[in-house]
Design a protein around this nucleic acid. Structure first.
Lengths: 96, 96
DNA sequence: ATAAATCAGTTTATTTTATAAACCAAATTC
DNA sequence: GAATTTGGTTTATAAAATAAACTGATTTAT
């Protein structure tokens, strides 16, 4: 009845990050930070976890003289996200 | 943009419990346990938290010779639940 | 030029949470 | 009447989230 919720996505910040990334195709650290309102430390940790899970890829480049951490949702990540959303419906108790 | 998710509800088991309770008006421990598939220990702990938050009321009665822990969602709990669901929409990235 | 502040993060530490394991008292079954 | 089951609670442990402190490079102000 209640499908299990992927613990990697059932985290406020990681979910916000994935939600942003699936709709935007690519986003850098600074953008994710402003969008989510997260602290840099928290964001850094959660990006690592998403990366290790293979839900995103992280590429570090230089934009002029400044470092820039670019994030992209992988196919695996997109699939996991949509499955999470789907499973979540069990919990909304709209259609019993 | 991303509304904060009530941490009391952003828990797989507590969310499943509240989801059940808002749709069912009253449920006992055993029923909640079978519905959610949770262990008794985990359920006990999470019911305490929901109770302390004022999201549910817990009434212990005897059904014949057996103890029975009855749970009901309060108005406060129902409101928090529907607000949680609403805030969650920010994360689904369907409408941008 | 250099000291101070800022940017773009990472690492480490602390608190909170979720979960499991162990336990308990009463009732039931063998 | 001994063992098992029922309906839980309490305690212990593992995992998570978050904050705080730090780094290394870059501007900005003096």
């Amino acid at each position: 009845m209640f499908r299990r919720l992927d613990p990697l996505l059932h985290s406020e910040l990681r979910l916000a990050v994935m939600s942003t990334l699936v709709s935007v195709d690519e986003a850098d650290f600074v953008y994710l930070r402003t969008q989510t309102g997260a602290t840099a430390g928290n964001l850094s940790v959660q990006l690592d976890k998403l990366c290790e899970a293979g839900y995103i890829t992280v590429e570090k480049v230089f934009k002029g003289k400044k470092p820039c951490t670019n994030c992209i949702a992988t196919e695996k990540g997109r699939k996991a996200f949509s499955e999470y959303i789907d499973a979540l419906k069990d919990y909304l108790s709209v259609g019993k």
